[in-house]
């Protein structure tokens, strides 16, 4: 956290305004957050094939209604 403040202070001294830092960090946070969200959801859905495709409807002829 301390490092972030130091970097922000240096950048502000060099010409980035508070608004500039807010926009830069905000936009990057939004995009990175969106990417991270997608990656997590993709990884959580570990077996897409199983989830996405309808299971094979195999009639084994060993039930009453077969």
């Amino acid at each position: 956290m301390g490092d972030v403040i130091v970097i922000a202070t240096v950048l502000m001294q060099e010409g980035l305004t508070t608004g500039g830092i807010a926009m830069m960090v905000g936009c990057m946070g939004f995009v990175l957050g969106l990417c991270l969200f997608c990656v997590v959801r993709l990884l959580r859905d570990t077996n897409p094939a199983e989830h996405h495709h309808v299971p094979l409807d195999i009639d084994t002829h060993d039930t009453d209604d077969s």
Binding site: G15, L16, G20
Partner: peptide, 15 residues
């Protein structure tokens, strides 16, 4: 000019 001021040129908002 430094790279910090370059970032300012790109990101400082003109509302």
């Amino acid at each position: 000019r430094t790279i910090g001021s370059g970032l300012g040129f790109m990101w400082n908002p003109d509302w």
